[in-house]
Design a protein around this nucleic acid. Structure first.
Lengths: 337, 337
DNA sequence: TTGTATGCGTTATCAC
DNA sequence: GTGATAACGCATACAA
């Protein structure tokens, strides 16, 4: 059987194409009887809508672009997967653009997304704090996940509660007996990292623990392992450190490896907690405690807001949606697996 | 400026829409002069093709479906990323379907892909050895990566040289001084694992080392950690084992953790090598030697073959394309990082 | 070498 | 409540 169209459906169910279209889209008026009739024929014939025609006519592509810095990063991969799945169920295709944290590539992708006339764009995180340049010919709605939009009033910004994450990570260390905490983070600091830092500092304050930038914070550079010498010296000059919060799990595992290499026992001498709950957190010795982001809720919120924008409902514009995180306790903070 | 179409281009460059179309697609005859003229106007106006119209007219969606078992698996994520990037450059969108190794979900996705009338499908690996059921109304071309198609003559099958991988992994252990090797793998064995096993066995043979299923192979089940007791007993009864090849890196890291927990030193007492070269292989202590698959070449080959099929060029049908792998030496087989 | 005209499958605007 | 019909932007068969 060749491609079957609404024309065929119309003929077989003895109505006009207009009516068939109305029934399919549940839009406009028609009697219950014709509805039944048409639906039956559709069922029998196995009719499938032609989205190209629909797109052409409606001037909508039913396609969403997703901008992601690095899909081999677990958190990003997880979010993308959620987005893809949920959008798919809603009849949307997705174009996933891996920018490699490269601003130039990002611009290039943005241009092509425009040319493919996507209905909307979801921007996940990004290279810098700069926000993102959207100099489109036509206005394309977009939402941001984990990246503050440049012009906040233009759109909506969804992210985990990184502040809360930083806070409960820190309290987990304190609860497991630490009183001299260290936060390890990268030099180039994202907006989400900034929140985690705030949570860390506030948790210390709340628990009446001392804090100073020099004694309780350590920065690592981009090139792997660069910091090992520096960090050793730091530890030597701060022998009282007994708990470490790394700004993410990858860094956490690196630090754990370093401590093991130095013969420093985790969690006996030093407790450790990361962020993201990546799968390998459970393969390390000891297993790594962490903070888990709710990627499903993040994605749900992002999609909901984006669809509203696409629908010209601007009530979410300027909003910031914050999703709670969860503590995952493991051996590195003295818990059983 | 509103959407600009070939009609506008035609008017502005003083030719007909037909000619504009010919120039754009470099198809049919036209003089160099008109080519220049049209291209100039296109450049100036920033014209962008409407893919919905093109699709409707050409009865092609310029969309490829990608079926993947689990995108949070590093190897799969890597392949998907490559596919996406390369297809994007070729003007194709992709729909990524994460099946979660669930046959039912897979069928459902397949149906929707058909309804979205994708031009082709790339199937990556899968739950079982059964191949995949393609009971489409219309024939959709597809290629398989790492999963033998059920009817091999129908399509093309691309995979790494898993045999070679198993072979050189084994020889790496032998080269670093091991003479009593163990292969650890999962109960449910994929076609690619099978090849790795063959390579393992043949490498032993070639090096005149003993081999028997009972002494040189250990199976683990699906639920994590199930095997720990059994494996301990196995090691106790096989004290001469001095090198382990795990069928993938995740398993390798699990085993490494187990050995550390048992106070068995890697690589001093026991050498270890995995497969896939996942990122965390470099965060473990010791770092894990591995076999790296060439995802770029795999993707390139898959796309090339698929596009041929879409173009009704059936010369690749029935072919099996094998991509070489590479050894990555690290501490777990006695190498410096 | 170029132009005219038709149709791809769908939705939306009118009429009735 | 329903039907005719005109668009949507593009590629192509056929004329010229």
């Amino acid at each position: 059987m060749e491609n079957i169209t609404i024309k065929d459906i119309a003929r077989l169910s003895d109505v006009s194409v207009a009516t068939v279209s109305r029934v399919i889209n549940n839009n406009g008026r028609f009697s219950e009887k014709t509805r039944q009739k048409v639906l039956k024929v559709i069922e029998e014939t196995g009719y499938q809508m032609n989205y190209s025609a629909k797109s052409l006519r409606m001037k909508r592509s039913f396609t969403i672009g997703i901008l992601v810095p690095d899909i081999s990063n677990y958190f990003f991969a997880d979010v993308v997967q959620q987005l893809e799945e949920q959008l798919f169920d809603l009849g949307y295709s997705t174009i996933i653009c891996n920018t490699g944290r490269n601003a130039e590539k990002e611009q290039k992708y943005l241009t092509i997304l425009e040319s493919k006339s996507v209905d909307g764009i979801i921007v996940i995180s990004g290279a810098n704090e700069d926000g993102i340049e959207f100099n489109f010919e036509k206005e394309i709605p977009y939402v941001c996940i984990d990246r503050k939009p440049k012009v906040q009033e233009d759109t909506v910004f969804i992210s985990s509660n990184h502040y809360q994450g930083g806070f409960i990570a820190t309290e987990e260390l304190i609860d497991s007996g630490c009183s001299n905490l260290l936060l390890i983070l990268h030099q180039e600091i994202s907006s989400s990292s900034k929140e985690r830092v705030k949570g860390f500092v506030d948790a210390l304050k709340k628990n009446n623990l001392p804090y100073s930038d020099e004694n309780n914070m350590f920065f690592v550079g981009t090139n792997k392992g660069e910091y090992r010498g520096r960090f050793k010296k730091f530890l030597d000059s701060h022998p009282d450190i007994d708990g470490i919060f790394t700004v993410n799990d990858n860094l956490g595992l690196q630090i754990m490896k370093f401590l093991l290499d130095m013969n420093i026992s985790v969690p006996d001498t030093l407790k450790l907690i990361g962020f993201d709950d990546i799968p390998s957190a459970v393969y390390s010795t000891p297993t790594l405690s962490s903070i888990k982001q709710n990627t499903e809720e993040i994605s749900k919120a992002a999609i909901q807001s984006l669809l509203k924008l696409i629908d010209d409902d601007e009530s979410d514009k300027g909003k910031q949606i914050v999703i709670p995180v969860k503590l995952v306790e493991r051996q590195s903070t003295n818990h059983k697996l």
